[in-house]
Simulated scan of single mutants.
Amino acid sequence: MQVAEVMSRHLVTVELDDKLSLVKEIFDHVKFHHLPVLDQGRLAGVVHERDLLRALSPNLGTLVETWRDAATLHKRVHQIMSRKPLTIAPHAALTDAVQLFNQNNITCLPVLQEDERLQGILTWHDLLKHWPGMHAAAAL
């Protein structure tokens, strides 16, 4: 099986200068945990939900929230994103993706076309959803 067969194609992306309030809004309303970050249409990085949680004050939305806590929502994506993420091609084998995940302790791989345009994203969750098919294809 190839990456293109199991990757997520419906992407939500953010830009380098978007505020963390936007990222929080997205993560609060969707069931995924990674956001590709684009700069003029090209992949610049990835924001993981854990990156956001580390950047925001734990006092947000509590009775002890201060102006400094609320100000953490005004930070910009480029301040917390992972830069130069490992990527994979859509025609790569899923076994190559698994190897990248394991060797680099990562949880997502942006999928780039030959022209470096973002085509999708592959996560461990995508692999696990298709595991029976991967196992059957490997046996052939």
Rank of each mutant, 00 (worst) to 15 (best):
Q40C: 09
Q40S: 13
G41L: 15
G41F: 15
L43I: 06
L43F: 04
L43Y: 01
A44I: 01
A44F: 05
A44H: 02
A44Y: 02
G45K: 05
G45E: 12
G45Q: 10
G45N: 12
V46N: 00
V47N: 01
H48R: 15
H48D: 15
E49P: 01
R50P: 00
R50G: 05
R50I: 06
L52V: 11
L52G: 03
L53H: 10
L53N: 10
L53P: 05
L53E: 13
R54V: 03
A55H: 06
L56T: 05
L56S: 01
S57R: 02
S57W: 06
P58G: 09
P58E: 03
P58V: 05
N59V: 04
N59C: 05
L60K: 05
G61D: 13
G61P: 05
G61T: 12
G61A: 11
T62E: 08
L63G: 10
V64C: 12
V64R: 15
E65W: 11
T66Q: 03
T66V: 12
W67N: 10
R68Y: 12
R68P: 04
R68H: 14
R68I: 08
D69I: 02
A70C: 11
A70M: 14
A71W: 03
T72E: 06
T72R: 02
T72A: 09
L73K: 11
H74N: 15
H74M: 14
H74C: 12
K75S: 09
K75M: 12
K75Y: 11
R76H: 15
V77D: 00
V77G: 00
H78A: 11
H78Q: 12
H78Y: 14
H78W: 11
H78L: 07
H78R: 15
Q79P: 04
I80G: 02
I80S: 03
M81K: 01
S82C: 13
S82F: 11
S82H: 15
S82T: 15
R83G: 04
R83Q: 08
R83H: 13
K84L: 07
K84F: 03
K84A: 07
P85R: 00
P85F: 06
P85K: 00
P85M: 05
L86F: 07
L86P: 00
L86C: 07
L86E: 05
T87K: 07
T87I: 14
T87D: 08
T87Y: 08
T87A: 07
I88N: 02
A89G: 02
A89M: 02
A89C: 02
A89Y: 01
P90L: 10
P90S: 07
P90V: 10
H91E: 13
H91I: 04
H91C: 03
A92E: 09
A92D: 10
A93E: 09
A93I: 01
L94R: 00
L94P: 00
L94F: 02
L94H: 00
L94Y: 00
T95A: 15
T95L: 15
T95N: 11
T95Q: 14
T95V: 14
D96E: 14
D96N: 07
D96A: 11
A97G: 04
A97D: 03
V98D: 03
V98Q: 09
V98K: 10
Q99T: 10
Q99M: 10
L100W: 07
L100S: 08
L100A: 12
L100P: 04
F101I: 01
F101Y: 09
F101M: 06
F101P: 01
N102L: 15
N102F: 12
N102V: 09
N104T: 05
N104G: 03
N104I: 03
N104L: 06
